[in-house]
C-alpha cells in the first residue's frame, strides 16, 4: 500500500526506475537531449546489482575498459552523469504507475513521493531487491503481523518475545538493537560463525554470556500460531531433531533476492517475466514507457551492460520525441558538438 502523497508532485521529463548502471547511463543519454531525469531505486545507494551483488568483482567487457569493478563502474557513471544533476530517490520502491488524461504518467513510491513525468524508463534489472523469504508453510498468514523482514520502529517490538534468524550483519544489528526492548530475544543461526562485523559478534556473545539474550544453533523449520499471531517458532538441528522457541515475532534475515515486484502490475506486455520491447525505441507495449537493460526482452537479447548502454541511447532518441514532439533532434557527437560540450560542462 502506498501512503498518501507527502508533498506536491514533482514534475520532470523522465523518471528512471532503477539506479543500476543502465539507469545511470540513461540519465546521460537523456541529458544530452535536454531531458531532465529523476531516478528511483529501492536500494539505499546507486549501482543496482553492481553495488549490491558484485561491488568487488571485475567486469571485463565494458568497451574500452579492459577491467573495472562493479563499484568502480558505478563511480565512473556517477561522475559521467554529474553535469545533468539527476535527482535520486533512494530506498524507495515505485508502487503505482498510472497514465493521466494528458498522456503523462503519475508515479507514487512506498514512502509517498509522487512524480509526474512525460516518459518512464524502466531500468530495473532483475526487478527490485527484496528480502528472501524462508520456505515455511503458511508463512504468508504471518507476514506483516508476526513475521517481519525489516524493522521500521524499534518501539513496535517492545515487550515482545523475538526470534531473529540468520547470521549476517542485519541479523546481528537487529539482535543488538532489539535486545534492550524485547521481553526475550533468541538468535537462531545454523552455525556458530557469523558473516558480520566482528564488533557486533562480540557484543552479541557478551549479551548471551550475560543471559540477556539466547543463541540457538539451528534452522527455521515451521511456525505455530493462529490467525497470523505467532506463538512458537520451531527450529531444526543438523541431526533433524526439532525444538520450539516461544515467540511473538520472527525476524528472518537471509539477504536479498530480486523479484519483478510491482512492475508486473502495470499492464505492460511481459514475456517470461521480462518486459517485451521493440529494438528501435526499446518501448514497452505502453507508449511512453520504455524498458532497458536486464528487465527487457526482444529477439536476440543479451543481458550485458554494454547492450543496456546501447538500448539507453536509442531509448533517449525516442523519449525526446515523446517529450518534445515538435522539436527536431539533430544528431550530434560528443567529440565535436559545441552544444553538447556546453551541456557536459567541458566547453
Amino acid at each position: 500500500m502506498s501512503k498518501a502523497p507527502t508533498s506536491e508532485p514533482i514534475n520532470t521529463d523522465a523518471v528512471i526506475i532503477g539506479a543500476g548502471p543502465i539507469g545511470l547511463f540513461a540519465v546521460f543519454e537523456l541529458g544530452l537531449l535536454d531531458l531532465k531525469a529523476h531516478v528511483i531505486d529501492i536500494l539505499p545507494k546507486p549501482g543496482g546489482q553492481c553495488a549490491e551483488l558484485y561491488p568487488e568483482k571485475p567486469i571485463y567487457d565494458i568497451p574500452g575498459v579492459p577491467v573495472i569493478s562493479g563499484e568502480g563502474l558505478v563511480e565512473k557513471l556517477l561522475q559521467q552523469i554529474k553535469p545533468f544533476s539527476p535527482q535520486f530517490h533512494l530506498g524507495e520502491r515505485v508502487e503505482s504507475l498510472t497514465r493521466q488524461k494528458d498522456g503523462s504518467f503519475w508515479l507514487a513510491t512506498d514512502i509517498g513521493t509522487v512524480i509526474e513525468a512525460k516518459v518512464v524508463v524502466v531500468a530495473a534489472g532483475g526487478g527490485s531487491f527484496e528480502s528472501k523469504k524462508p520456505p515455511l508453510a503458511d508463512l504468508a498468514d504471518y507476514e506483516g503481523k508476526s513475521v517481519f523482514y525489516l524493522v521500521r520502529r524499534i518501539e513496535d517490538f517492545r515487550g515482545k518475545r523475538i526470534v531473529v534468524a540468520g547470521g549476517g550483519d542485519s541479523a546481528l544489528d537487529w539482535t543488538l538493537n532489539l535486545a534492550p526492548v524485547a521481553k526475550s530475544l533468541t538468535l537462531l543461526h545454523r552455525r556458530d560463525q557469523f558473516r558480520a562485523a566482528p564488533d557486533s559478534v562480540s557484543k552479541m556473545k557478551a549479551l548471551v554470556a550475560e543471559k540477556k539474550i539466547a543463541f540457538e544453533l539451528g534452522q527455521l523449520h515451521s511456525l505455530e500460531g493462529e490467525g497470523g499471531k505467532l506463538s512458537r517458532v520451531v527450529a531444526r538441528r543438523e541431526d533433524k531433531s526439532t525444538f520450539p522457541l516461544e515467540a511473538d515475532v520472527l525476524l528472518p534475515f537471509f539477504g536479498l533476492t530480486m523479484r519483478l515486484g510491482p512492475v508486473a502490475n502495470w499492464g505492460l506486455k511481459l514475456e517470461d517475466g521480462l518486459i517485451a520491447v521493440d529494438t528501435e525505441k526499446f518501448q514497452s507495449s505502453e507508449p511512453g514507457i520504455f524498458a532497458i537493460g536486464d528487465i527487457n526482452t526482444y529477439p536476440g537479447k543479451l543481458k550485458l551492460i554494454l547492450s543496456g548502454f546501447h538500448e539507453a541511447a536509442l531509448m533517449a532518441q525516442a523519449a525526446a520525441k515523446v517529450v518534445n514532439p515538435d522539436k527536431r533532434i539533430v544528431f550530434q557527437y560528443t567529440t565535436t558538438s559545441t552544444s553538447l560540450h556546453k551541456k557536459l560542462g567541458v566547453s
Partner: peptide, 10 residues
C-alpha cells in the same frame, strides 16, 4: 560457507 548462511535448508 559464509554465503550459505543466506540459503535455506542448509
Amino acid at each position: 560457507e559464509d554465503m550459505l548462511d543466506f540459503a535455506f535448508d542448509v
